[in-house]
Amino acid sequence: MSYPTGEDIAASVPHFDDAVKYINGLPKESPVPGLELTSQEEKLGYYALFKVATVGEVSTKRPGMFDKAGQFKWDAWKALEGLTSDEAKAMYVDIVAMSMLIDAKERPEVFGWLNDMLSNDDCPAFVKTVLDGSKDAWPRIWKLAEDFATALVDAKENGKDGDLVGLRWQAIYGDVYVPKPGMLSSSLGGFKLSGAEWQSWSDLKGTKKDAAMQSYIEKSA
């Protein structure tokens, strides 16, 4: 089975609007001291997938040399050419859900903040779906992601996480869509990847997300 299947798309696309609303509603300043909710890589991914989902392939000229942030966004969008609108919607939804499931294992402070939302009357619908919904109704990839999140913790504890960093990024985000780290990306701030980590991710181009997750789970033991 290779992600995203028609079944994956059918299960995830109905949650697209709620996932977008949740991401757009995140506070500009992190509510968790010392921890950012989304990195530059994640923000670029959400932007690019949203553009493919709602517009399609790149339809504008690449921004000029003085707009480096705009160039990064345009390049990320361009890198996703070939995805259909529904594939992009499903991937967007699944990445947002995966980030919550991973936070549940790796970042208890962020998970605690998310979990506190459930008691609020204005709790985002997508947070309820992921954290308080029936797991039986979860899309296939979310169920696999729960095991993947456990594997991330295991790999960190046994020292294998460094060797598996490329698989981690491929499993969560699919093919590389961000520029290789350098002076320009560093000047914008917020990028987490080193050059070597980026290369290990890029080397896995073409590997399906579900296959990368399964491989990480197996190699983390």
Results as ranks from 00 to 15, higher is better:
T5Q: 10
K205R: 13
S194F: 02
F148Q: 02
S39T: 14
W138K: 13
K105N: 09
N120L: 09
E197P: 06
D103F: 05
E36K: 06
F16Y: 15
S200H: 11
Y173F: 04
G159W: 10
L26M: 15
F66N: 03
S185T: 15
P108Q: 05
Y216R: 12
K209F: 03
G195Q: 14
Y216I: 07
G70F: 08
Q214C: 05
L35W: 03
K21V: 11
K51G: 02
A76I: 13
K180E: 15
V20T: 06
L167G: 00
K192I: 04
P181M: 08
L49F: 08
D203R: 06
E57R: 13
L131T: 13
K61V: 09
K128S: 00
Y22D: 02
K61Q: 15
S30L: 12
S185C: 05
I9P: 00
P14I: 01
F66K: 06
A48H: 14
A151P: 07
Y22F: 15
P181Q: 06
K78Y: 15
R62C: 15
S194L: 10
S187K: 03
G166F: 07
L167N: 10
V93D: 00
D8V: 02
R140T: 13
D103P: 09
G56L: 10
C123G: 03
I102D: 03
G56E: 03
G189C: 01
G133S: 07
L83S: 10
K43Y: 06
I9V: 11
F50S: 12
S202E: 03
F191A: 14
Y46D: 02
Q199T: 07
S200Q: 14
V127P: 11
V153H: 01
R140S: 15
K105T: 13
M98W: 00
M213H: 08
G159D: 10
E87I: 08
Y3E: 06
A10T: 13
K128R: 15
P31F: 02
A137K: 15
L26E: 14
V13S: 10
G6M: 12
T84C: 02
K143Y: 08
I102N: 08
A79H: 07
A151Q: 02
D175Q: 11
A10F: 04
D210A: 02
K160G: 09
A211V: 08
L144G: 01
S119E: 04
S2M: 09
A171W: 12
I141C: 11
D163G: 14
K68C: 01
L184A: 05
K28F: 08
S187F: 07
A125M: 06
D161F: 03
E157G: 03
E81P: 00
K51W: 11
G159Y: 13
P4N: 09
K68V: 12
W198A: 10
D175T: 04
Q71C: 03
N24K: 12
M100G: 01
W169Y: 13
F66S: 09
G6P: 12
L204W: 05
V130E: 02
V52E: 10
E146G: 06
K73Q: 11
K51P: 04
M1R: 01
S12L: 06
K21F: 03
D163Q: 09
D75R: 13
A211W: 00
W77I: 09
K205A: 13
E218H: 11
D116S: 14
S187C: 10
R62A: 11
G195D: 09
G45I: 02
A145F: 04
